[in-house]
Write a protein that binds this DNA or RNA. Structure first.
Length: 474
RNA sequence: GCCUCAAUAGCUCAGUCGGUUAGAGCGACGGACUGUUAAUCCGCAGGUCGUAGGUUCGAAUCCUACUUGAGGCGCCA
């Protein structure tokens, strides 16, 4: 017996209609999945909406009273698992072209206590579903988000692979704590109840697993730079960790980041790469997730499709930090935080720039050097560095990047100014001594991108099992 | 970490000025219905009002602490 996913079945239908439509109807197949909904009729039949997660569409299974276990079929509730053998036939109902007339329905797993089963067939709030992360994927919302998340992840690899980038696996465990990207989680195999101390009473990391203090990575950038300075175009794509006690809708302690790094590329090329990558992803989602987008438009945010369509059609706006400050200073606005040249833009400023001033993703470039990291390349004006942020309406900073300082002397001076230890990063400085070239890169927050694309505005709802401050369940 | 708000049935909520036996919708369960599709209609069950204290003749309601959650800010992706 041919076993198909619902997605395959729908594809076959399309295919058979074109070429040999006669063969499609009347074929016997096996489907396996979970009951999404069931409607009974005293006419002597039940309609089961079956889902297997392969796509948003459910398959209608018609179960007639003649089935030997029909009494049990009447007791099926949402998310009971079943295996169905049946015949594909034209549907008499108007919501689907075809349906499966069951010859045999095997009940694989019952749902105990349907009354208290958390994911009952009704609307649920995302807050409630968050409390049952292991079961919330059994909703249209979460399964749609995860299919889109998959499309996005795959599109990222596709874009880079098509453009001759090499995917490199940078370490998760790092001894570098000077990247300035945030608080780190410490990694240790020491017994915390009996820590070895040196003569001064400080913890002696010589006895730790790596013989020194180590952390979970906050970014693969520095390692990626080393590889781009030999392979020209590389990217990292993996989880990163920040131990910041952030409590917002857009921060996670464990999140996924994409970090391309390109040799012989300046800031303009960097910004262009960011725009091309994002547009490639938006296009992929528009093409591959029609039903999911329909769903988001209906239940989450009416603008989801319009936003993506207009994003791929329009150039991203690029403005300098200095221009942004000038706009922010124009009269008639009432910001809580002060605006002046040199200030680190706060959320309300960033929101105003991309939501009100521009109305779509905006690339802000050339920030004051004093609010940016040590590795960003000094501009000729002596005041700014070649940094860029891509700001997206609703989710804020979606990309942060820069042209890196490739000039040894300038980099060393900057590190000294900012008190960055030279010794731990001597390997990084080596890169500027042996065939250094201008190079650029950025970090794209995958989770923020998923949030932006789907319109689901809490980042904890677009990753399967979110990790955040005081929250590491499941 | 700071600020604000919230917690009542499996879920979403109402509950007046502190006053008798805390209500509704959805879901679940039972029944009706000749093809349903968020099925429809009828019926039934379901409660330690987050926890602990306090005020009061009397507390879901007022006060305090704690817990949990949400939103905003900061940090950033």
């Amino acid at each position: 017996m041919l076993k198909l996913s619902i997605k395959q079945l729908l594809q076959q239908k399309q295919h058979n209609q074109d070429e040999h439509g006669k063969n499609f109807f009347g074929t016997d197949i096996t489907l396996q999945g979970w009951v999404r909904n069931k409607r009974d009729s005293k006419a002597g039949l039940s309609f089961i909406s079956l889902t297997d997660g392969s796509c948003l569409t459910t398959m209608q299974i018609v179960a007639k009273a003649q089935l030997p276990n029909y009494e049990n079929i009447l007791k099926l509730t949402k998310d009971c698992s079943i295996s169905v053998i049946g015949t594909i036939e034209k549907s008499l109902g108007s919501n689907q072209d075809f349906e499966i007339i069951a010859k045999e329905i095997q009940i694989i797993g019952w749902v105990e206590n349907p009354e208290t089963y958390p994911v009952s067939p009704k609307r649920h709030t995302v807050e409630f579903l968050r409390e049952v992360s292991h079961l919330r994927i059994r909703t249209n919302l979460l399964s749609s988000v995860m299919r889109v998340r998959n499309t996005i992840s795959y599109a990222i690899h596709e874009y880079f692979q098509q453009n001759e980038f090499y995917w490199i696996h940078t370490p998760i465990i790092t001894a570098t704590d000077a990247e300035g990207a945030g608080e780190l989680f410490q990694v240790t195999s020491l017994n915390l109840n009996d820590l070895p101390r040196d003569g001064l009473g400080k913890i002696d990391y010589k006895n730790d697993f790596f013989g020194k203090q180590t952390f979970l990575t906050v970014s693969g950038q520095l390692n990626a730079e080393a590889y781009c300075l030999a392979m020209s175009k590389v990217y990292t794509f993996g989880p990163t960790f920040r131990a910041e006690n952030s409590n917002t809708t857009r921060h996670l302690a464990e999140f996924w980041m994409v970090e391309p790094e390109v040799a012989f590329a300046d800031l303009n090329q960097n910004a262009k790469l960011a725009e091309e990558l994002l547009k490639f992803i938006f296009n992929k989602v528009l093409n591959d997730n029609l039903h999911e987008i329909d769903f988001f438009v209906e239940y989450i945010d009416k603008e989801v499709r319009n936003r993506l369509t207009s994003l791929v059609a329009n150039k991203f706006e690029v403005i300098t930090y200095t221009e942004a400050i000038e706009q922010l200073l124009k009269p008639g606005k009432n910001f809580e935080n002060p605006v002046y040249w040199g200030v680190d833009l706060s959320s309300e400023h960033e929101r105003w720039i991309c939501e009100t001033l521009v109305g779509r993703p905006t690339v802000v470039i050339n920030y004051p050097k004093d609010i940016k990291a040590f590795y960003m390349r000094a501009n000729d004006d002596g005041k700014t560095v070649a940094a860029m942020d891509v700001l997206a309406p609703g989710v804020g900073e979606i990309i942060g990047g820069a042209q890196r300082e490739e000039r040894y002397d300038l980099l060393v001076n900057r590190m000294k100014e900012l008190g960055v230890g030279l010794e731990a990063l001597s390997w990084y400085l080596d890169l500027r001594k042996f065939g250094s070239v201008p190079h650029s890169g950025f970090g794209l927050g995958l989770d923020r991108l998923v949030s932006y694309i789907t319109g689901v505005n809490n980042i904890r709802d677009i990753i399967p099992f979110p990790r955040a401050s005081k929250s590491a369940n499941f």
